[in-house]
Design a protein around this nucleic acid. Sequence first.
DNA 1: GTCTATATCCAGATAGAC
DNA 2: GTCTATCTGGATATAGAC
Lengths: 214, 214
Amino acid sequence: MPYLKKDAPSPEPIDCKILTAALDLFVEKGYHMVSIHEVQKKADVSIGSIYRHFGGKEGIAKALYIHILNEVDELIDGVTKEFDSPIEQLEEIIKQLFEHTETHQQIISFIFHAKHTDFIPNEPLMCDALPFIKIREITAKAIENGSLKGTDTWVTTALIFGSAIRLIQLRLDGIIEKPLVNHVDTLMSSLWHGLKTDHTFSQTQEKLNSVAVL
Amino acid sequence: MPYLKKDAPSPEPIDCKILTAALDLFVEKGYHMVSIHEVQKKADVSIGSIYRHFGGKEGIAKALYIHILNEVDELIDGVTKEFDSPIEQLEEIIKQLFEHTETHQQIISFIFHAKHTDFIPNEPLMCDALPFIKIREITAKAIENGSLKGTDTWVTTALIFGSAIRLIQLRLDGIIEKPLVNHVDTLMSSLWHGLKTDHTFSQTQEKLNSVAVL
DNA sequence: GTCTATATCCAGATAGAC
DNA sequence: GTCTATCTGGATATAGAC
């Protein structure tokens, strides 16, 4: 998940400058507290350019939103290619999100700490966007193949990612002081303890050579 | 948790009218998309009155915020009086929040589905408000008396309420179709399965006459 | 395509009568 | 304490030169 394609050959660096500036400002002050002039100033371009490229403030937000969802999508795809079992995939996704919370704060903040419907109406809810559909499909597979309990994919996914996202938010707010990597084991152990089927769970436990639970 | 004190003898019904109208509009359109004139119109009072009582739009939001936090605080107090063990208290708080998601949608939405820092800056984060401090104190007690695993109160509380809040949000968005009461058992069972100490957990299981887990 | 200068609009806030 | 009429600032958006 490169940071706004800065690693890419960037055929159109102007868009990137504007999007980067906007992301910074939106995250810092909130979309509605940022004027288009501020973006213009920070990106060091003219108002005219912004309107030419994005058609206005909402256009910037929309482009940013789509762009960042693409980055997340790439993250998901990377993980699913690297790991085979749905459980491992879910775990790795959370781990990588935790890492990105440290290294790509702005992006994570924009995704998990903003209320998009407040400034991009008429856009489908974020949980209906491609990467999040893919996440639920992974959960569904885990339920199907009998490694996770549960019947409702939405609910099970909410149980897993609700905790993770809340931790991310607390970390972004500076309330959790250490990087979330320090808490990933606690999180995953309680999650799997509560959600894995007994069969799968005891398998994992054996693998870990841990003492039996009961 | 009476709905904006409508049950109370209401010595000053005007404030209530304004706050109720504002709550409706803020939840529906988002704070920044609501003009003070809309509130004025919906509450059927004059601009002057609003400025007299609240000093402006942000004043309304602040008053609403404080008012609603008070309601939540009363909910917490009610629960702690009714139940003795921290575990039961946490469970009951979640149950009541789920019920309120159906019966007091606006209030729950305002608390759990808005980004307050976007419109009430300089206010301490919501998780530092009294009712949420109390919730963490309950968690802390549960850890102390050995019924919950975990060392960090923030993290354990995030694990518990992260999932619950995510479910609430999905319900408010209409994505989860049935009232959350239908999912409360699933939630609590995975949570406690993952977070209760083995000792406490097996005790509960015995009480429930359920078959042994392993 | 990029820029500056300008137009338009409307939200937030105030003044002052009643 | 409540109201209406009014002011003002600033944000979005446009026009038109380069």
